[in-house]
Design a protein around this nucleic acid. Structure first.
Length: 238
DNA sequence: GCGACAG
DNA sequence: ATCTTGTCGC
């Protein structure tokens, strides 16, 4: 029997556990983010999200693999591990990535692109969870958040597809505020890795159907949330 | 010093 | 994120 080979690198290197070191590591990793489109035809895409159980003691990561053309789920996996860090704004990836990577490892295939709940580069140090995930996996990633962490923007039209740039204090574009449906609260979309600022919102709209969230994130959200009691611990194939 | 603050 | 039922509006 062969030993299962880890598909992805360790997310924190030799991090000592301090929040100060976490912020320094973010700056190092942010320098490795690539914002040029660098992906082939998308056949398999993935959505990831994280939820909590036992009052927060258990971190529960969900990953759903879908056929990029039919948007039908192809496989899914769930990882439950003890929560190791509290929620600290700006340090979300240190709390959630270990479980996310474990769930990704359990998948039967490697996705061509990952859509993650949370920010990509629209982050104080340009390393939201989607960007961090992109750097450690080497895969193309996009952050799809429901709220702004940092940045400002102009008013946004109410129609589906309306979008405006999200700017940091210096005026640099760090993401897109995107209305995925008429009159719903906009999504905050930003590249994680190997995707450009302009392409990210287009790719998200490619996978939006009748809901506010694009299918990859929506399905992962449903699986990670505690309302899904059918969730199995073993990876599922469809 | 004060306000903001993904999930 | 999570605790939680019904209800208002498109």
């Amino acid at each position: 029997m062969s030993v299962p080979e880890p598909r992805y690198a360790s997310p924190f290197g030799d991090w000592d556990g301090s929040t100060a070191a976490a912020r320094e590591l973010q700056q190092v990793l942010a320098a490795q983010v690539r914002l040029e489109d660098d992906f082939g035809p998308l056949k398999l895409i993935a959505g990831v999200d994280v939820g909590f159980e036992e009052g927060g003691a258990i971190t529960r990561a969900a990953v759903v693999l879908l056929d990029a053309n039919t948007l039908e789920p192809v496989a899914q996996s769930l990882a439950r591990i003890p929560t190791s860090m509290p929620y600290v704004p700006g340090l979300l990836s240190f709390r959630e990535l270990p479980a996310v990577l474990q769930a990704l490892e359990a998948l039967p295939q490697v996705p061509d692109m990952i859509f993650s709940d949370g920010q990509g580069i629209a982050h104080p140090r340009r390393l939201g969870i989607a960007a961090h995930l992109g750097v450690v996996t080497g895969l193309p990633t996009i952050g799809v958040a429901k709220k702004i962490l940092t940045g400002r923007h102009e008013e946004l039209a109410l129609n589906r597809g309306a979008q405006v740039d999200l700017l940091d204090k210096s005026g640099d574009v760090i993401g897109t505020v995107l209305r995925s449906k008429d009159k719903v609260r906009p999504l905050i979309v930003s590249p994680g890795n190997r995707v450009s600022l302009a392409s990210a919102p287009r790719l998200v709209m490619d996978y939006v159907t009748r809901y506010r969230l694009p299918e990859p994130t929506r399905l992962a959200d449903r699986l990670a949330s505690r309302r899904d009691r059918q969730a199995t611990d073993q990876p599922q194939l469809f």
